[in-house]
Simulated scan of single mutants.
Amino acid sequence: MRIPDPAPPRTRSGNLLPMINVVFLLLIFFLISAEMTPPQPLEVAPPETATDAPRPEAAGLLRLFVDAEGQLGFQAARGPAALDALARARAAQCAETDCTEAPPQLRLHADAALAAATLADLLGKLGAMGFAKVDLITREARP
């Protein structure tokens, strides 16, 4: 009687496809849930304040940056063109929503070394553009 040779043992290899699917699903989840903010157009060191009250985030928030020399930055625009870009962004927001009921919010990121006269001049220009309220961003004073 002839006994057949036993078949070589089959190696059991794990299927990696489910693990790859889970990794990609986690990657997609973290990319979607992450809050991505655009980079600041200018490097600004905000002035210090005694208390740092929390500022609620709002949809359609506009951010204007001013460095120590008075150079303006809004999104990709620099210098005097930043005010024009800000005016266009405000007009676009007012076209979408009623600006009399909910005026656009402007956050001003001004450097602590900025001259007060330059800041006052800028606030006058922003008021003429229709910004009734401008939030000056500060940082909490360190003891």
Rank of each mutant, 00 (worst) to 15 (best):
I3N: 05
P4L: 00
P4H: 01
D5W: 03
P8L: 08
T11W: 14
T11M: 14
T11C: 15
R12M: 14
S13G: 13
S13K: 15
N15C: 10
P18G: 05
N21C: 13
V22G: 12
V23T: 11
F24A: 13
L25D: 08
L26A: 15
L27R: 10
L27P: 04
I28Y: 08
I28Q: 09
F29E: 06
F30W: 14
F30P: 07
I32W: 15
I32H: 04
I32Y: 13
E35P: 08
E35V: 07
M36S: 13
M36A: 11
P41Q: 11
E43C: 08
P46L: 09
P47Q: 12
P47F: 01
T51S: 11
E57F: 06
A59R: 10
L61V: 07
L61Y: 00
L62W: 00
L62I: 03
L64N: 02
F65W: 10
D67P: 02
D67Y: 04
A68K: 15
G70S: 08
L72H: 03
L72E: 05
A76M: 07
A76P: 06
R78I: 06
G79S: 01
A81R: 12
A81E: 13
A81I: 08
D84H: 12
A85T: 06
L86P: 02
A87R: 12
A89C: 06
R90F: 09
A91R: 09
Q93I: 06
A95W: 06
E96D: 15
E96C: 07
E96T: 12
E96I: 15
D98G: 14
C99L: 06
P103E: 04
L106M: 03
R107N: 09
L108E: 05
L108V: 02
A110Q: 07
A112H: 04
A112I: 08
A113N: 08
L114C: 09
L114H: 02
A115V: 00
A117I: 11
L123G: 01
L123V: 04
G127L: 05
G130F: 03
F131H: 01
K133P: 00
K133Q: 14
V134N: 06
V134K: 10
V134S: 11
D135R: 06
L136S: 12
I137G: 04
T138E: 06
R139Y: 00
E140A: 15
P143K: 04
